[in-house]
């Protein structure tokens, strides 16, 4: 997956592939095609070029270990319980809020992309600043998001808040 593509371009490519899969594939509905495509996206290797791709690789590994079981492989979450990360304003938006969700956990009703969720997210404050930064960078640049990287410094500054 080339995570450094700008969001708009990424959307256009994925929409085209989804359309082709829908028209010529043998699946029943566009949603499942979309998810199949996103799974392909997750399984694709991150190319070896420089520091950012190393961060993304580490982030993906942490995602697999700590996040995937609830937020799912394609970042689609679980309806009513665990919110999606795909094009999520929580993921794409304000870094501070996002970092604090990982450091302090989250419980109770929230709204994500106009849908409601009521679940429990454990705090992940045992993970190092570097690990939290890399997994946040990974989710901000995957699942059809294309937001800026999160640095370990930004995580460190918010510990205990």
């Amino acid at each position: 997956m080339n995570c450094q593509l700008p969001a708009v371009k990424m959307d256009k490519i994925s929409n085209f592939i989804v359309l082709m899969l829908f028209l010529f594939g043998n699946s029943e509905n566009p949603a499942s095609v979309l998810i199949q495509y996103r799974l392909i996206q997750f399984d694709r290797d991150i190319p070896e070029n420089g520091k950012l791709s190393r961060t993304l690789k580490n982030g993906k590994e942490i995602y697999r270990k700590f996040c995937l079981s609830c937020h799912q492989k394609d970042g689609s979450g679980v309806p009513n319980t665990y919110p999606p990360l795909i094009r999520s304003t929580w993921v794409k938006g304000n870094k501070t809020k996002l970092i604090l969700v990982l450091l302090n956990g989250l419980e109770g009703e929230i709204t994500v992309n106009e849908d409601y969720y009521n679940g429990y997210m454990p705090k992940q404050n045992k993970l190092s600043d570097k690990k939290i930064a890399s997994v946040l960078t990974f989710i901000r640049q995957s699942f059809n998001n294309a937001s800026s990287v999160v640095s370990p410094k930004e995580v460190k500054a918010l510990r205990g808040k």
Binding site: N29, I35, L39, Q72, G77, P84
Partner: peptide
């Protein structure tokens, strides 16, 4: 669910 393979709960039309 209405789909042949359910890879994420969000794929399901009904639960």
């Amino acid at each position: 669910a209405g789909v042949s393979r359910i890879m994420s709960p969000r794929d399901a039309h009904h639960r």
